[in-house]
């Protein structure tokens, strides 16, 4: 026997904030329904508001939504401290153990080891094949081409340290989808150390000491206006949190 099973894809815990438009439409249509009383409409609205408040409570918002979010981390507290560590490297003298003592340590977050094979891949742009020409590596300092031919005896420690923080100007306006104002600030440090037989022979560094980006989205009608949902999901620690489906960011 054939049976029809109507199943909604939306998880049961989906917070239907964007579906405010749907309940607005429901209310408008239901006013024309015979026997529909005004107190029932008010009841529906109260239930929905209570639902939002309840969901906020379940979603770990027992106090207030988080006002800022740490996006990345590093073992240096500022761009300048990472730069100062790099400035202490003496080419031809500093050993890998001394680098570790300075905090440039592949065992820690933000540092990766690239072998001589990976060096060529990093020096050649990804679209080099389109240019159909070769750039002589001897344009670079002698260390890099030499490293590329040394096999296992040469390695490059590539670092990317960053501290970025996205600050919410008004978490409650964001939760109710009226205004999402993000203030992203921080810094990013990129560096590379070429080591031959465990001795640093060259170090380069760069990055952005002061990052500041603004994103301001305004929906004058808040939850009634078009936009994606806010969902309840489980985070890595299996705790229930609210997540904005527009940005994929948690509240």
């Amino acid at each position: 026997m054939c049976r029809f099973n109507v199943r909604r894809r939306i998880p049961i815990f989906t917070v239907a904030l964007d579906t405010g438009r749907r309940w607005a439409a429901t209310l408008l249509f239901s006013m024309h329904a015979p026997g529909m009383r005004c107190h029932r409409i008010a009841l529906v609205m109260l239930v929905v508001l209570a639902g939002i408040a309840g969901v906020a409570g379940i979603g770990g918002c027992s106090s207030t939504p988080r006002t800022s979010e740490k996006l990345t981390a590093s073992n240096y507290s500022s761009f300048e401290s990472a730069r100062d560590a790099f400035l202490q490297i003496v080419p031809g003298e500093t050993t890998s153990d001394e680098l570790r003592a300075l905090g440039i340590d592949p065992a820690k977050e933000g540092t990766t080891i690239v072998g001589s094979m990976g060096l060529s891949a990093r020096l050649v742009p990804f679209n080099a094949a389109l240019v159909n020409t070769e750039q002589p590596l001897d344009l670079l300092s002698e260390n890099l081409p030499q490293c590329a031919g040394m096999g296992q005896r040469c390695e490059i420690w590539i670092t990317r340290y960053a501290r970025l923080r996205a600050k919410r100007r008004n978490p409650w306006l964001e939760l109710l989808r009226f205004r999402r104002m993000r203030d992203k600030t921080g810094w990013r440090f990129d560096g590379a150390v070429v080591l031959m037989d465990g001795i640093a022979v060259e170090s380069v560094w760069g990055g952005i000491p002061r990052i500041h980006e603004l994103n301001d989205r305004i929906r004058p009608l808040g939850p009634f206006q078009a936009g994606k949902r806010i969902k309840i999901v489980r985070n890595r620690k299996s705790r229930l949190i609210l997540r904005d489906e527009d940005s994929g960011e948690p509240f």
Binding site: E80, L123, V124, P125, A128, V131, T133, Q135, L139, L140, L144, D190, A192, V204, W205, G206, G207, I208, P209, R210, I211, H212, E213
Partner: peptide
């Protein structure tokens, strides 16, 4: 160090930009 979003790039990045 005083203005926002000024990126310091190394000579290796410059080398890559002028590849070809």
């Amino acid at each position: 160090y005083t203005s926002y979003n000024v990126e310091i790039v190394t000579y290796i990045d410059i080398f890559r930009q002028f590849w070809g």
